[in-house]
């Protein structure tokens, strides 16, 4: 595989990998570094890339592993999960026209989930992967993925219910 072929096959994935890394790391520069490192690793395996069923899945797995390494190496979490929780607890007023606060709240709610659930809800609800593909990326079976996904979605629903109650109280 020469450089041009490689770029053609792999470069279109860059934003997908970036979003995944950004979701896990919450830090744009680190996420960009991770994507670059992932591409370098794929390039180092360029002779074997044809043997993989899906280059995309391999790219996602590589990105995931790099992110998990980064998280493990962190001495201090970038942003305190506790802050996220507090923001969610004291969700600001929600108006029907402007959803920006509650959307922010949903992002933070996802951030308070266990890593597996964060990855799964991201891959499914944002990137639209099939369960089979998610299973390959996060290395879990499809049933466990459905359970984790359901938990993650219900966590968001709890948040919505809370803001709805708030809405009713106001009216």
């Amino acid at each position: 595989m020469d450089l041009r072929e490689f770029q053609k096959a792999v470069y279109p994935l860059k934003n997908k990998l970036f979003r995944f890394a950004q979701r896990m790391l919450e830090h744009s520069e680190e996420a960009e570094d991770v994507v670059q490192e992932a591409f370098i690793r794929l390039w180092n395996r360029r002779e074997k890339l044809d043997q993989y069923r899906s280059v995309e899945a391999l790219a996602m797995i590589t990105t995931k592993n790099l992110c998990l390494d980064k998280i493990k190496a962190r001495r201090h979490p970038v942003e305190n999960i506790e802050n996220h929780r507090q923001f969610i607890e004291n969700m600001p007023e929600v108006t029907r026209e402007d959803h920006s606060d509650i959307i922010h709240g949903i992002h933070l709610a996802i951030k308070t989930l266990p890593e597996q659930q964060q990855m799964i809800i991201h891959l499914r609800d944002i990137e639209g992967y099939e369960f089979e593909e998610i299973a390959e990326i996060v290395d879990m079976n499809e049933n466990a993925i459905r359970v984790a996904l359901s938990r993650a979605r219900k966590r968001i629903r709890e948040l919505l219910n809370k803001s709805k109650e708030y809405d009713y109280q106001r009216n």
Partner: peptide, 10 residues
């Protein structure tokens, strides 16, 4: 929220 998140780019 999901729709917006998909628009994020490098």
């Amino acid at each position: 929220c999901f729709d917006e998140a998909l628009k994020l780019e490098m």
